[in-house]
Design a protein around this nucleic acid. Structure first.
Lengths: 226, 226
DNA sequence: TCTTAAAAAATTGTACTCAATATATTAGAC
DNA sequence: GTCTAATATATTGAGTACAATTTTTTAAGA
């Protein structure tokens, strides 16, 4: 969220904030003070306000009238609804990707897997989490349905947020090589396997959450910039 | 879009514009001039701008930089994607409604059917179109998944827009009693029938569109306020 | 020392202003 | 009359200012 030289469109501001949320640099519940953001991005509050409006519509931010914008703290029920939605939509995404992906698309998937591997090798946990989410956004983009792509572009950042809130503290980096298995199945045009792997992957992520326990109550100010 | 006495929140402004689009009072492609809207709603352009940002994110409005906001003209491909998404999501909605709807929910459905019947009896075509869309939004709301509800709250107004653009001129009011058949099946907890009816209903709507023909090119200024 | 009340500071909500850009109009040439 | 260029008008983009509200701080009383 560093200041920049070029003029940012509100979508870009929203995207930068989204990335910060996905990387757990902005924890759930934190207040997003308009003036601070305006300073950080080098724009006026007018634009920040529009970006926050956008993020609120997206569901990543909660707006409390006269009190400001806060990074959302999804409830356990919302988390369950989110995964239910993903279990409905992502098999369809897999089907469509297998049906329409060209070589270039497959190459992009491999390139993404490579980035994930690099982040894992470097032990860059934040980047791993963001890239893990973006893998699913990439798949959705390759599926060729703008509405489903947009839906996933909202659900993935929210999933990162849910992981930040409900993840067991000791959970290791991430689902390891489940992504590459899915890509393999897609390449082999093995629809049944790809869907099975995708559902297993989603269930894996959800199962590691502690949705029944109370969510992490407070913001860890000490580790916020760690 | 008449002026009002109470102060409107940007969500309410967006909702009023959405209703106007759903009722085909604002045709696809029409320009939404900020100052005009500001005057109509009795607020400053600042708020209108935020409402338009919201509607653009929703996909109901297209923003052309430095040129303004226009009611979206969905392409045939977008129309097909939209219906594909609805065919994926609405069976799940039906399943969930059957599983969780209480008597009060069923009563709301009946109440809605009654409104539709009234609009039909009164020959109020605009109201029929809007209510037809809102039936599906109501079903989605009763399904109890916030993400699917939000998705349908976007897809239904867009569907109205697509109908405005691609509907055969002579198409009669609307799908008649297909909605009430769906409600019947839901009441009987007949999941298979309800899903079948829903899919048939969606295919019925899509089949009456002329997606292969060029969309209606221009705005009918003569009938805009007719 | 803990509560409560009052004052101060910070923050949001909204209108207003002016520059940048696009659109419409007019005038001139052919 | 029609095309083109120049001017005028309309509209959007974005910052600033100020009122309304909330939060924090300070002070007083029990």
């Amino acid at each position: 969220m560093e200041a920049s030289t070029t003029k940012l469109a509100i979508e870009q501001i929203a995207e930068r904030i989204t990335d910060a949320v996905m990387e757990h640099r902005l924890p759930p519940g934190i207040k997003l003070v308009e003036e601070k953001l305006a300073g950080a991005f080098g724009v006026s509050r007018t634009k920040i306000r529009q970006a926050l409006t956008l993020l609120a519509k997206e569901g990543l931010v909660t707006l409390h009238p006269n009190r400001g914008a806060f990074v959302k703290r999804p409830s356990a029920e919302e988390a369950r609804d989110l995964f239910a939605t993903r279990r409905l939509v992502e098999p369809e995404i897999v089907r469509n990707v297998i049906a329409r992906a060209c070589e270039q698309d497959i190459a992009r998937l491999h390139q993404h897997l490579e980035e994930e591997a690099q982040a894992r090798a470097a032990g860059d946990r934040r980047r791993i989490i963001r890239l893990s989410g973006q893998f699913h956004m990439l798949l959705a983009a390759l599926a060729g349905n703008a509405f489903i792509e947009k839906l996933m572009a909202e659900l993935c950042p929210l999933t990162c947020l849910i992981i930040a809130l409900y993840d067991a503290p000791q959970t290791p980096a991430c689902p390891e090589d489940e992504h590459s298995q899915i890509v393999d199945a897609i390449e082999n045009h093995d629809e049944a396997a790809a869907i099975r792997l995708m559902l297993h992957h989603l269930e894996h992520i959800e199962s590691e959450l502690m949705l029944d326990a109370a969510p992490k109550l407070d913001i860890h100010w000490e580790t916020l910039y760690g």
